[in-house]
Design a protein around this nucleic acid. Sequence first.
DNA 1: CTGAAAGCGCTTACAG
DNA 2: CTGAAAGCGCTTACAG
Lengths: 337, 337
Amino acid sequence: MVSLWIIQIVPSIKDIARIAGVSHCTVSRALHHSPLISPATAERIRDIARRHGYVPNAVARSLVSRSTHTVGVVVTTIADPFIGEVVEGIESMANEHGYSVILANSKADPELELKVVDGFTQRRVDGILVTASRVGAVHGKRLAGTNVPIVLINNQHPGEFAHSVGIDNVTASRAIVRHLLDLGHRRIAYIGDRSGYQSDAERYAGYRAMMPAVDPKLVMRGDGKPEQGECAAIQLLGLSRPPSAIICYNDMTALGALRAAATLGLRVPEDVSIAGFDDLFVASYTSPPLTTIRQPKQEMGRRAMSILLQLLAGEEPESRILLPGELIVRGSTAPPL
Amino acid sequence: MVSLWIIQIVPSIKDIARIAGVSHCTVSRALHHSPLISPATAERIRDIARRHGYVPNAVARSLVSRSTHTVGVVVTTIADPFIGEVVEGIESMANEHGYSVILANSKADPELELKVVDGFTQRRVDGILVTASRVGAVHGKRLAGTNVPIVLINNQHPGEFAHSVGIDNVTASRAIVRHLLDLGHRRIAYIGDRSGYQSDAERYAGYRAMMPAVDPKLVMRGDGKPEQGECAAIQLLGLSRPPSAIICYNDMTALGALRAAATLGLRVPEDVSIAGFDDLFVASYTSPPLTTIRQPKQEMGRRAMSILLQLLAGEEPESRILLPGELIVRGSTAPPL
DNA sequence: CTGAAAGCGCTTACAG
DNA sequence: CTGAAAGCGCTTACAG
């Protein structure tokens, strides 16, 4: 069977002009409700446009207005639930202000990220948002040199960029430690992330600041995923003087720690308290549910987009916004026996 | 402090032409590696373009080529982990073929969805992908009437659209029931979704087809979220002759059922087996981990994009693709005591 | 109130 | 091998 092509004619402003018997610029003005056009003809033109299914061509408009009303969003992966929430926030804020979101995946690969940003530049996005980038480390200066305004969210290698939104890791981390100290814990372990992220450094700093003394045996590093969290927790719980509580860099790591406790036949929170960071959806459904720090994910997206909007309006927004985390106490922490 | 505007001049093809002392069309050809241009001048022009930071303007190119190499993706919410995976698949396939993804949120609101599609039309996307839409119900015909090719993923109200990708719910559902029957279960309950989705009808059909007899008391409906799954499960488990196993419409419902069992002091799987559908990330981290059907989420996105690509190439792809689900047996199902 | 003209940045027949 | 010309669909001073 041969494929049949029906050429769908989408009418242009000129087609409408011809039908209405006016010039195409009059149509343009009528469609924009310009006060220059007489109400009668304006209405007549709009009616014709409607009946003929006229849809303005944003591409042509962008070419002359030199603005696409589009923002590029770079993510390491959109399948990550954390990033999904952030993008949800970006998208809603963008949408409320007439902007569209172009999404691109960098797969955390610096080369790909550069390609992605190049693609954004070709498409003439008005601005760029980058989430959870470790990429600043590699191509920071290069990106920062672009003409397009860039706002970073949860940037892992700050410095090069003017504008960013993040979470107050130190304060949040201190809040978790305080919570555990208040419960009566004294031997508190920390399972961090060895990737060299600033967020890990800050969370660890909060931990150190609150602890009267830190036993180096109680500090380990994973990779932010459950498996290594499990390994680290197994080692910690096997110590001659094991911790009574474990603070994890993030919820993923805590998932592994919970599993480690189960494997070792330890009860949470009776035998060991475990805390995470992020408050992913899964944190409410583990057994027991996880005590953690809630990051305002959507809010972070909205704020970042809002900074971008200000930048595009020629304003001078705050350069670095630090949002507070919220301690969510659930069943995985309790006084030590 | 007054905002200072540095006008960033992005050179156009004409600027490069002036510098190179040729016409702008020669530049255009050189940049496209046209064989018409002498290798020497071509290289010289490309070098000048490079040094002056020339970046082609895709907007202008789109205007003349009448193709934006852009696809619009409609989601009910990008924060949903299921949808995130699907979009990941779409994005990767799109990217491999030089297409960009514009993301838009419909919030499952038919009005908004229509606005979103209208926005896509203005931006002249080459095609549209819609995930998990209940919207077909309301505006199906209207959308189907657009000039732009549309492919649906996990469509809940098929019929109006030519092209779609889905999962073989009936077969997958039968596989779960068979698994439970093989374990020795005879009283098997089903907690469905009352929203009238086709997926629920199909999963229920698979359940009915495999059961020698269905006790109507063992069939309940929630809304696909944990709370109502919990309610339904509490009622089921309180029956004078309670089920020994519960099949849930999806993992979210199963999360509620697991919680119900815990609340009632029942052990899973010893006292009751529980199965879900979807294989969300959370399914591996519940306690016990959840037996469920894995949907090939990324694959669904890739296949849908691939159909769209064929459509754009003027080919005639299969109109309806049904992917198989995979039974994932974990700790939440076992023989009845 | 309306139209003719120029231009946004590019591609592509058509001449030479 | 290269350039002049036309055109993609629109906006917006500039005249009238």
